[in-house]
Amino acid sequence: MKIFVVEDDQSLVKMISEQLQRYAYETFVPQHFDAILAEFEMIQPDLVLMDVNLPYYDGFYWCQKIRERSLVPILFISARDGNMDQVMALEYGADDFLVKPFSYELLLAKVKSHIRRVYGDYAQADRARQLTAGNLVYYPEALKTTYQDREELLTLREGELLSLLIQAYPEMVKREKILNKLWDDERFVDDNTLSVNIGRLRKKLSTLGIEEPIQTIRGKGYALSLAGQNQ
């Protein structure tokens, strides 16, 4: 199992890495703190340990960026012990928050717990879960969609959007429902933001070979369109 330790205190990184490596975890540290996302995508870790205070951008920023692309467990480790910091971490997509100083026994227990939840026996049922509409299949845990013999990887937001469209197929999904599901509060999202996300998903589904895969019902919402396809 690979663990990405995003922490700029080198002495702490060394101690955390030594503890984790004792239990056969492989640890990685950032080489460039302004390119955390690029390094994450290169390493493809199974879990991320993230500090809040980092050079260039804070941990909340990187947590949000990672969460747009992956469901990997993210555990914050920070000296900031205010309730609001912990709330913000969870709001940005973190799975847990550990306040410094912490015991390595507790850190290890949390790492094991999240890995067991996501990759162990507890995850077997979810890992096989799939949503289908005709020959279009979406695997939520893998953020992957397939159509006939082609495959595309999706971002987390694209996956959530496709889930809504497949579950409603062949009916329409109302614009308000999409906004509430993907952004919690539609008041802070304009139509252009939704249109951009629809456009990105539409492009990926077109790459799979589906012509005009998403129908826009003007002023109302969107619907998955597989009519005329070899479903």
Rank of each mutant, 00 (worst) to 15 (best):
N53R: 08
R187S: 11
L162P: 06
S206T: 09
E26N: 09
E105I: 11
Q148R: 08
I210C: 07
I43W: 04
W183R: 06
E39T: 09
Y104A: 03
I74S: 04
Q167E: 13
D34M: 08
E26K: 13
L182R: 06
A123N: 08
Y25K: 06
L71P: 01
R127W: 09
M15H: 07
R116D: 15
R175C: 00
E160H: 09
G219W: 07
I66H: 09
V189P: 01
Q229Y: 05
Q215H: 14
S17K: 13
V173P: 04
N53F: 05
R127K: 14
T193Y: 02
S163I: 00
Q19P: 00
E152W: 02
L224T: 00
S113D: 14
L201Q: 01
R218V: 15
I214C: 03
V5L: 07
E105W: 05
I166E: 05
Q215L: 15
Q44C: 09
G209F: 01
A133E: 03
I77D: 02
I74F: 09
V13L: 10
I214M: 07
V29H: 14
L90K: 10
Y138Q: 07
M1Q: 04
K14E: 15
N197S: 12
Y61N: 06
E160Y: 10
A79C: 05
D95N: 15
K174D: 08
H114A: 08
L179S: 01
F102K: 01
L208Y: 00
K144I: 00
F102Y: 13
S195H: 10
D190F: 08
L154V: 00
E141A: 04
P213T: 09
F33H: 13
Q215F: 12
E18K: 14
M84P: 01
F97L: 05
L106Y: 14
G120M: 09
S195D: 11
F102R: 02
D51I: 01
S17G: 14
I217S: 12
S113L: 15
L201V: 08
P45Y: 05
F76P: 07
N197W: 09
S70P: 02
M172A: 08
V48K: 00
L71V: 03
Q21C: 13
D126A: 15
Q215I: 11
L201W: 00
A109N: 14
D9E: 15
D149S: 10
P55A: 07
L12V: 12
K174P: 01
V111Y: 05
D51V: 03
S225T: 00
V87C: 01
Q231T: 14
F60W: 08
R69F: 02
I210W: 06
D51A: 04
T207N: 09
P213S: 07
D46I: 04
L12Y: 07
N83Y: 10
I198M: 14
C63R: 05
N83W: 09
Y169P: 03
K220Q: 15
E171R: 07
T145M: 01
V137A: 02
A128I: 11
